[in-house]
Design a protein around this nucleic acid. Structure first.
Lengths: 353, 353
DNA sequence: TGTTAGCACTCTGCATGGTCGAGTGCTAAT
DNA sequence: ATTAGCACTCGACCATGCAGAGTGCTAACA
């Protein structure tokens, strides 16, 4: 009885494999011939009929072959799929390619996105470090000219963000330093997530004069944390999707591309995808209607053990899951070691300062 | 004889108008009826036949109507078109919408791009200020942690760019200040365009010790000016193009979108478009093959009288030229006054400093 | 009991051919 | 110079028919 079931699954596996390659419904003959099971097409037909009853196969119409259902892909991903390596040389090449992206974290992440889309030929979407997962180390205000000031925020994770701000009046250098000191005093060591309540609390401990000084910077400081959300996502290989017959219909392609352009939606999608090391969201498992013809595979990256963002790839449901998963596994691992290597180097000294 | 020609042009005008609206070849009857010229379709037919001989109309096949040739659009743009205003209320709304984008120049430009694509329903592409058109005012090195340093470059035009860099070793605060001083001494007031030769020249005037100090920062400083090219373009409304029947063919759409994703190509296209206040490039007048089904309308923006970047819109050749031109006129004017208003405010004091 | 060959059936894709309508060019009349 | 009329052309659309792929069922076989 068990080997019976075994064969069914093998057949399902073959069907999925074939369909992923060809995008055409696959018939019993194809399976019998191409994947020599040593039984006739008729037998395969019977098995396929069973698989259809189990909800794993779908027949577009009477005399077409069958295609895997979403449930089948889920089964495949959960139980059938075997994840392989990318191969020593490719892995070494990728590792090498990170060399030039050591300075700015965002570049390493962008590079990861580019690699994802290049390797998988699907569309990649990545989140840059999300402010609300980070912790403030210190803030520095730097005069540019007149009332214009550059605010540099360094997080405990050693991520640097900076923002050009404009005060309502020109502020002298000494005043700016004073501002900076007080500001630092209250934002230091706070967690950006609770910054709203934290700050109002701490502001109360300050003198009236000090409050006055910060009157203008504080709202700006808070704003920044929210505002940059739409800059916090990057995507590459958006036209790759047009290579797949599923999207030859211009309207489908458009609704896909529309979302990719709507950065805020992407942030949401990535946030909903799950926070495991690797997450697979197939078709309607995604809550965003426009992506229900797609599958999404995401991974997270960490600094100092804390999840601070994620990388993902989005393609048709008929996706090469095992390959894509191995790509994502390797790249997220590589990105993580990249990010944390540089942290290891500096962290010790930072704490000591 | 003159009023004869007059009529031909009126007919051409009508055909263009109709074709721009409907994207269907337009026949003699349509023109006769819809734009009541007071003559019969047969007469129009004769005129159209003449216009075709003149190379202004094209007949896709014997029994279809006719469509305007590229030459016709050029004629239209150069001589026939009347540019109107956008209307007081719309103009006021747009002007208002700039309010919130005063802090960072790049945001004002991005906003302009968003407005372009929203108003025209074509795809907008814009260049952020190009480093090589700017002049250096000063540079500031700010320690982040260990060997990581933030380099802030302020231009004479008061544009601020900043880059995270990594030195080969941790550098103490005093040393960094020293570095900063020497660096500033030699880069100050130089024009980024000639920075290569300028710097080598000035480096020779420094002591060996000073040279040593700058050894690492100088190449980085030069790199920066080139490196960020691909970050220097932004585009919005890329999927708008899919609304036009010209791009219902997926392969056409793909080759369009591919270029939009290739930022470096966009920079080239915008640079080739011309540096007048307003430039119109129709179809094959563009040298980039993939955009020869498109028309491009660009405008420049200035700071202190100097061209530093451009904004543009790209759509099908069958474009609503007069409307788009009026949009671009208004927006570039608005952007310019936005950029230079803020400069007026500060320039005086800056020089005094 | 599982497997298989055979056969009728179904459905799509494609080529064919005919009709319709839109639009033209030409000619002759005004 | 303009126009009405008419023959002509071509694409869009639709019905038809055929070939090919694939199925489900049945009866025979190991």
């Amino acid at each position: 009885m068990d080997e019976k079931k075994e064969r069914k699954l093998l057949i399902l596996h073959s069907i999925i494999k074939d369909y992923v390659e060809t995008a055409e419904p696959v018939g019993s003959r194809t399976i019998a011939k191409k994947y020599n099971f040593g039984v006739s097409a008729a037998t395969i037909r019977n098995e396929m009929s069973d698989l259809e009853e189990m909800g794993l196969l779908i027949q577009p119409h009477t005399s077409a072959g069958r295609i895997p259902s979403q449930k089948a892909y889920r089964l495949y991903v959960d139980e059938l799929m075997k994840i392989s390596n990318l191969g020593k040389t490719l892995e070494a090449d990728i590792r090498d390619s990170y060399r030039q992206y050591v300075e700015e974290i965002d570049n390493a992440i962008k590079h990861t996105a580019n690699m994802i889309s290049r390797l998988t030929s699907y569309t990649s979407i990545v989140l840059f470090p999300q402010m609300d997962t980070l912790n403030c180390k210190h803030v520095q205000l730097i005069p540019i000219v007149e009332e214009r000031v550059l605010m540099v925020v360094v997080t405990k994770e050693n991520i640097v963000k900076n923002y050009e701000i404009r005060l309502s009046r020109a502020v002298g250098n000494e005043e700016l330093v004073k501002m900076n000191n007080i500001l630092n005093h209250i934002v230091k060591d706070s967690n950006f997530k609770n910054i709203g309540s934290d700050l109002t609390e701490k502001l109360e401990t300050l003198s009236i004069e000090e409050n006055q000084l910060l009157q203008e910077v504080i709202p700006i400081f808070k704003d920044i944390l929210l505002k940059k959300q739409e800059d916090s996502v990057y995507s590459n290989g958006i036209t790759n999707i047009l290579n797949f017959p599923e999207f030859y219909d211009v309207m489908k392609a458009k609704s896909f591309l529309d979302i990719i352009e709507k950065k805020s939606k992407l942030v949401q999608i990535l946030n909903e995808a799950g926070k495991d090391a690797l997450n697979i969201v197939i078709g309607t498992e995604n809550h965003v209607a426009e992506f229900q013809d797609c599958s999404l595979i995401t991974a997270t990256y960490k600094i100092g053990g804390e999840n601070i963002g994620s990388i993902g790839v989005i393609g048709p449901i008929r996706m090469n899951y095992d390959y894509v998963v191995s790509v994502m596994n390797f790249l997220s691992q590589e990105l993580n070691s990249q990010l944390n290597k540089s942290e290891e180097n500096t962290k010790g000294d930072t704490i000591g300062k």
